[in-house]
Every structure is written in C-alpha cells, then in structure tokens.
Amino acid sequence: MDFTRDILLENDRALLRPLVAADVDLLQEPAADPELWRYTLTRADSRPELDAYVAAALQGLAQARRYPFVIIDKQTGRVAGSTSYYNVVAEEQRLSIGYTWIGTDFQRTGLNRAAKHLLLRHAFEELGCERVELETDARNHKSQNAMGQMGATEEGTLRSHRPTQGGIRRDTIIFSIIRAEWAALRQSIFGAFDTNRG
C-alpha cells in the first residue's frame, strides 16, 4: 500500500478522501457528541482533543502506519466522520479497518455500511488483501452487532489487549472478513452500494 498516494473511494452514498489538517473544522460538529467516544481509545469531542486526534492520524500517515479518511455523506454533502486503514502487513496480504466514527446525525442511515463497502472493496480488489480485520472494545456491543450484521466473523477476544480511556486495559474482540467471503458479501450485504463495479 502506497501511503503517499491520495486514495479516493466513492459509491452512490459515500465518498472517502484522505484526511487533511484543515478537516478538523469540518469534523468538529459531528465529533461533538460525547457518547461517540465512550469506548474509543481516545476522545475527540472537544476541540483540543479533536486537534490531537487529527494530528495523531496524520502522524500515523506520515509514518506509514495508518491511512485516515474523512467520510462524506453524499446525500447531504457533509463531512460525517472518519475511518482508517491500519496494521497494514503487505507481505501477509492483510490489514485492519478501524478508528471509525460517524456523527450521531448519520447513524442508522446506511452511511457506515456504505463506507465499509468502499474500504473492503478497495482492500480485496485493489490492494490484494486476503484478510481484513476489525476490532472493538469488548464492552461495545453496538459495534459488535454492526460488524456481525455486515458479515464479519467474530474470532475471539484478546484479553487486556490495549490501554484505553480511564487508565484501564481493555479486552478487544477481533472480527474478520476473508477474500473467499467477499464476492458473496459484495452482492448481498453490500449490494445496494455496488452499482459501480468498475
């Protein structure tokens, strides 16, 4: 994966483009709900925290450790949130999708699934991945349900996996989608967004 290249991903519902420093202004409104950040590793519901979040994401990009996107809702033209590729292991043909959050106004609208469609399609069909991983805090049942509903398989729990808010170490639940599953998921779970097969 080339971390220096601008990656633009688009379907009928969502546009993903690379995060830039100036996006902090566009992200401030959708990020403002404290509930979005309950189970995340860091918070970004205040401007100083959001500034730090964007800076950390861009530092990860500069170090070729993370590729952050902004998520744009094409129905409204508004920036709705952010998501990233990370843990990219090219020699093993795998990566992770995460650091995903979408403002409250855009939840339960299909936007998150449209964004995942774009990320998965690019990972399997352009980057040559054999495996895509997703992880979430074991306490975040809403996220786990969403991953299951989009066809990801729950693989297990990594105990005391990562430090998180409040000075605790969280348990992380790992989900995955593998290449052998993608064609069927593309037609079923993600079929509504797959009008452009180019």
Rank of each mutant, 00 (worst) to 15 (best):
Q187V: 09
Q187I: 05
I72G: 00
L16Q: 03
H117F: 15
R17E: 15
F69G: 04
R78G: 07
A64F: 13
I168T: 10
T4Y: 09
I174D: 02
A184P: 00
W182M: 01
T195K: 12
A57I: 07
G198W: 03
I72S: 01
E133M: 05
L50A: 09
R162N: 14
D2M: 05
D25E: 13
R17A: 10
R43V: 14
G98S: 04
D6S: 10
G98I: 04
G128Q: 07
L58M: 14
E154K: 12
G103S: 06
I177Q: 04
Q28M: 12
G151D: 04
V79K: 00
S96I: 00
T109L: 09
A114H: 07
L61K: 15
H117V: 08
G151H: 04
I97Q: 02
V132H: 02
D51K: 01
P18K: 02
A192G: 06
R131S: 06
T136I: 11
T195Q: 14
V89M: 13
D25N: 08
E154Q: 14
L16V: 07
S46P: 02
R43D: 11
K142F: 11
A123E: 02
L134K: 00
Y53I: 05
K74M: 12
I174H: 01
K116T: 06
G128D: 09
L119C: 07
P68L: 11
E133F: 06
W101C: 01
I168S: 06
F69V: 13
R139T: 08
G166F: 05
A115H: 05
V54E: 07
Q75K: 12
A31S: 13
Q63E: 15
Q165H: 07
L19H: 03
R108F: 10
Y99G: 03
R13Y: 13
D137E: 09
E49G: 02
V24M: 05
L119G: 05
D51F: 03
L58W: 06
E35M: 11
F124I: 07
N196Y: 11
P30C: 10
S176W: 02
A64M: 08
T100K: 00
R113H: 11
E126D: 15
V132Y: 02
I102E: 03
T4D: 14
